[in-house]
Amino acid sequence: MFEIRLQYDGTFDGFLSLVFYAFENKTEPKEIAKPANVSQDLFSEVIEVETHTAKAERVWKGLVNKSSLKNARLISVAFMSELPGIEVLLWRYLKKVFTFPQKDFYQNMLDEDVYQVVQTARKVKKEVHRFHGFVRFQQTADNIWFAPIEPDHDIIPLLVPHFKNRYSGQPWVIYDTRRKYGIYYDTESVSEVFIEYPALDLNTGRLSEKAKGSHEDDYLHLWQQYYNSINIQLRENKKQMTRLMPRRYWKYLPERNR
């Protein structure tokens, strides 16, 4: 018998459309992946599922109604992890929720899939929380506040509500240098931006001389001075620091990367 592999566009709406398709056709996919990642072999059939916003919306609403908003949010957060195999895991989870609807299903630690989904979502949420703190804006010459980030998971969409609320009066861009896209907020609404060659040094995240605002270096130095002065040398504990602020995030933190 042929194994079925499903292919979608990589978006969350695309994934929900695929869930709709799989339910409708009683498909049991062996693999769910973006076109670039789908494995091809003689014994499987690859089906490409198109994204339908309306179908995605129906799946989402069904999920909220049959279980709870908390459950639905858990799925959307775990999806952002981009971990290999996350789609099939979430598919199995969704199947259970739709077959035996339970409001607090996400607490069931007896179920291997629930455990995996919860652990994954926790990783993503932890990173989102960290980046509420680790995002560093620089003022550009044309008065936009620009922050490069390089998170493990695709968290930019999850960062937007916090920063939109906090910096509602200043236009900003948060840009993911690995995934090569960002969110631009113009003090009214947000939109996705794609920049092929951003005007910054990719080793430090600093804006180029031409691009940055005139006071940027001054405040940067004040911040670095503050960071050094507030440390208590007699209590040195670098292990603790690295545990709480892992090295992989230092690149764009001017207090660590000088």
């Binding site: 916090h162 040195e236 504990n237």
Partner: peptide
């Protein structure tokens, strides 16, 4: 919560922005 045209808000869970070499 922020007000229109204002700067910033307070998050009830607390946010750490950096960590010094003493681990604080």
């Amino acid at each position: 919560s922020n007000q229109k045209g204002g700067l910033g808000n307070a998050a009830s869970c607390g946010i750490c922005h950096s960590f010094t070499e003493d681990g604080r």
